[in-house]
Structures are given as C-alpha cells and as structure tokens.
C-alpha cells in the first residue's frame, strides 16, 4: 500500500526559501501570491496492513524522525 507524510514548518517559523520564491513570483507579476511555505513530501510503499496500523506506524515515524517538533508539524495521508 502507498502512504504519504507531509512535513511543514509551524506557523511563525521563518522560511527563507518560501519567502524567496514568494518574492520571485510577485516580481514576475503574480501579485495574487500572498505567501509561500516550503515543506517536504515523504512517500512510503508499505506492506499491506490494516489502515489504523499503518497510521500508527507512520505517526510514530513522523514524530521520532521525519519532523522536528520544535519547528515542524506533519500529517499522515493514507489513500
């Protein structure tokens, strides 16, 4: 089964990459772009297992490894 974990900066954490892209787009005339934040998408290929089990496992991986709770949050996305 396939699954995804999305890792994003918490609100308020400085994201210079996002800011640079936002500025770049606005300079090109995309004035409707108000803010850009960069995150990470981690894709998993898992053995077949019950949904809840996969969710628990990815939740564990999310908070021990994929996200740093000081600056980031994460979201488990199952199909």
């Amino acid at each position: 089964m396939k699954a995804k974990v999305l890792v994003t900066y918490k609100p308020g954490v400085l994201d210079p990459q996002g800011q640079t892209i936002c500025e770049f787009l606005r300079n090109r005339g995309e004035s409707r772009v108000c803010d850009v934040r960069i995150g990470k998408l981690v894709e998993f290929e898992l053995e077949d297992m019950p949904r809840e089990k996969a969710e628990r496992m990815l939740d564990d991986i999310g908070h021990t490894l994929l996200a740093n709770p000081v600056i980031e949050t994460y979201e488990v996305v199952l199909p």
């Binding site: 210079p16 990459q17 640079t20 600056i71």
Partner: peptide, 17 residues
C-alpha cells in the same frame, strides 16, 4: 544535540540561504 533534545530549540537555514 538540539535534535536529540539535549538542548532546546533548533537550527534552520541561514536567513541569507
């Protein structure tokens, strides 16, 4: 040390990138 929780806070990309 920050990642391991032995020190508080975190270190992120330099502001200048």
């Amino acid at each position: 040390l920050c990642e391991a929780g032995l020190l508080p806070g975190a270190l992120i990309r330099n502001q200048s990138l």
